[in-house]
Amino acid sequence: MKTTLAWAVLLIGTVAVQAVLLPLIFTQGVKPDIILIITMSAGLLAGRERAVGVAFFAGLMQDFASGNVFGLNTLAKMATGYTAGLAERKVFKESILLPVLAVIIATLFNSAFMQALLFILGYKVEPAAVFMNQVLPSIGYNILFCIPVHRLIYRMTFGNRSQF
């Protein structure tokens, strides 16, 4: 119960910051996706079940806050969290490189998944323009935030059992 409450507070606070504060700081339209980083870290550290649950709750709130195609963020985050969760037992969780490499892969996967969903829904998709104007800057911003967020998720998952 205590852990569920901590996750809920983290996700609600993060969605609020990402929807309200980050657009004021990052004015060019591209901003870090902290929800994606949390989902990716939950998958790598706590497994696919936890990641899918976190991604569903966070993606749903993000869909409500964003005004995009409803369900797009939810499905993309769930797929990303599930995919990251598949690697949970295969990674060295204390590695400082893990969140950096994983966030690059997760950002690419999440963006490709969202573009594929939009294409399936009949929207015009320009992958090259999206990649250059949105995905690459988003990767850079996500890298800036990935280590502190990953450490926070590590502490929420394992407590203070390690020196990470």
Score class of each variant (00 low, 15 high):
Ile34Met: 05
Leu36Val: 07
Leu36Phe: 07
Ile25Leu: 01
Val17Gln: 03
Ile37Leu: 15
Leu10Trp: 06
Leu10Asn: 03
Ile35Asp: 05
Ala19Asp: 01
Gly29Ile: 11
Ala6Gln: 15
Ile12Ser: 14
Leu45Glu: 11
Trp7Thr: 09
Leu24Thr: 03
Val15Ala: 02
Gly13Arg: 06
Gln28Phe: 04
Lys31Trp: 03
Ser41Trp: 13
Leu24Ala: 06
Leu24Lys: 04
Ile35Lys: 14
Thr27Phe: 07
Thr14Gly: 04
Trp7Met: 10
Leu11Glu: 06
Thr14Asp: 02
Leu44Ser: 07
Thr14Gln: 05
Ala42Asp: 05
Pro32Phe: 05
Ala19Phe: 01
Trp7Leu: 13
Leu24Arg: 04
Phe26Gly: 05
Val17Trp: 03
Ala8Asp: 06
Ser41Phe: 14
Ile38Cys: 06
Met40Asn: 03
Val20Lys: 02
Met40Asp: 02
Ile34Trp: 03
Ile38Leu: 12
Leu22Ser: 01
Ser41Met: 13
Gln18Thr: 00
Leu44Gln: 07
Ala46Ser: 11
Leu22Cys: 00
Leu45Val: 14
Gly43Gln: 11
Met40Val: 06
Ile38Gly: 04
Pro23Arg: 00
Lys2Pro: 02
Met40Arg: 07
Ile34Thr: 11
Ile35Phe: 07
Thr27Gly: 07
Pro32Trp: 06
Pro32His: 09
Met40Gln: 05
Ser41Tyr: 12
Ser41Thr: 09
Gln18Tyr: 01
Thr14Lys: 11
Ala6Asn: 14
Val20Trp: 00
Ala6Thr: 15
Trp7Asp: 11
Val9Lys: 14
Leu22Asp: 00
Gly29Lys: 11
Ala46Trp: 06
Lys2Arg: 08
Leu45Cys: 09
Ile34Lys: 05
Lys31Gln: 12
Val30Ala: 10
Ser41Cys: 10
Met40Ser: 08
Ala42Gln: 09
Leu44Tyr: 10
Ser41Val: 10
Gln18Lys: 02
Ala8Gly: 08
Trp7Gly: 14
Thr4Pro: 04
Ala46Cys: 08
Gly47Cys: 12
Gly13Asn: 02
Ile34Ala: 07
Gly13Gln: 01
Leu24Gly: 02
Asp33Thr: 11
Leu11His: 06
Ile38Tyr: 07
Gly47Met: 13
Thr14Ser: 05
Leu11Trp: 04
Val15Pro: 01
Thr14Arg: 07
Thr4Val: 04
Lys2Met: 10
Asp33Tyr: 12
Thr39Asn: 13
Gln18Met: 01
Gly43Asp: 04
Leu5Arg: 10
Ile25Asn: 00
Val17His: 03
Leu44Lys: 08
Ile25Pro: 00
Leu44Val: 14
Ala8Cys: 04
Thr3Gly: 06
Lys31Thr: 04
Asp33Gln: 09
Ala16Val: 13
Ala19Lys: 09
Thr39Pro: 03
Leu36Arg: 12
Val15Asn: 02
Pro23Trp: 01
Ile25Tyr: 00
Gln18Val: 02
Ala16Leu: 06
Pro32Gln: 08
Trp7Asn: 12
Ala46His: 08
Pro32Lys: 13
Leu45Trp: 10
Phe26Glu: 03
Pro32Ile: 09
Ala16Asn: 02
Gln18His: 01
Thr3Gln: 13
Ala8Gln: 04
Ala42Pro: 07
Ala19Met: 05
